[in-house]
Amino acid sequence: MGISIVPTLKVLKPVGLIIGGGFAGLLLGYWVNVTYFADDAPQQPIDFSHRIHATDFEIPCMYCHVQARRSASAGVPSVSKCAGCHQEVATDRAQIKKLMAFWENKEPIPWIKVHDLPDFVHFPHNRHVAAGLECQTCHGPVETMDRVKQIAPLKMGWCLNCHKEYEVENGLDCWTCHK
C-alpha cells in the first residue's frame, strides 16, 4: 500500500479555496479602488467646473487665483470672490445655492487639496510665474476639466528635469527647493 498525497490535498482544499478567493477579492478591490475611487480627482464639496469658468466664459486663471503671482501659495479664492459674481449669476442652480449657503453662514468651503506637496518642499508659485511658466505646464489642462485631477507626478526627479532643461540658477542645489 503506497502513501498518497490525495487525502492531504482533500483536507487542504477549502483552505486553498479561501486563500485563492481572498486573493482574487483583493485584486478586484484594488482595481475598483483605482478605477472608481482614485484620490487624484476627489469629489469636492461643490461640483465646481473649471471647464465652464475657464473655457466657456474665458476667465483667466489669475482672476481667481490672485496669489499665484504674489506669494508662494497660489491660494484658493475666498467665498466672497465666488459670491461677487454668483449673487447675480446663475442663482437658481443647485450648486450655486450650496455655495450661497456657505456665504450666508460665513463659512469657508472645505475644498479638498488636489496638488499637495510634502511639508519639506519649498515651492514658490510667484517665482515660477515670474519665470514665465504657464499654469498648464504643471497643472495640466485644468480649463478642460470638470473635476480637477492631478496630471504631473510632482516628484523630485520631475522637478529637477525642468530645472536642468531651463538651466535654473542654483536650480540643482538641495536648499533651493527643500526647507
Partner: peptide, 15 residues
C-alpha cells in the same frame, strides 16, 4: 549634509 554654493554647511532633513 553638504556644502552649497553659498559656502553654507547645510542639512537636508528628509534625506
Amino acid at each position: 549634509t553638504y556644502h552649497n554654493q553659498d559656502g553654507l554647511n547645510t542639512q537636508i532633513y528628509n534625506r
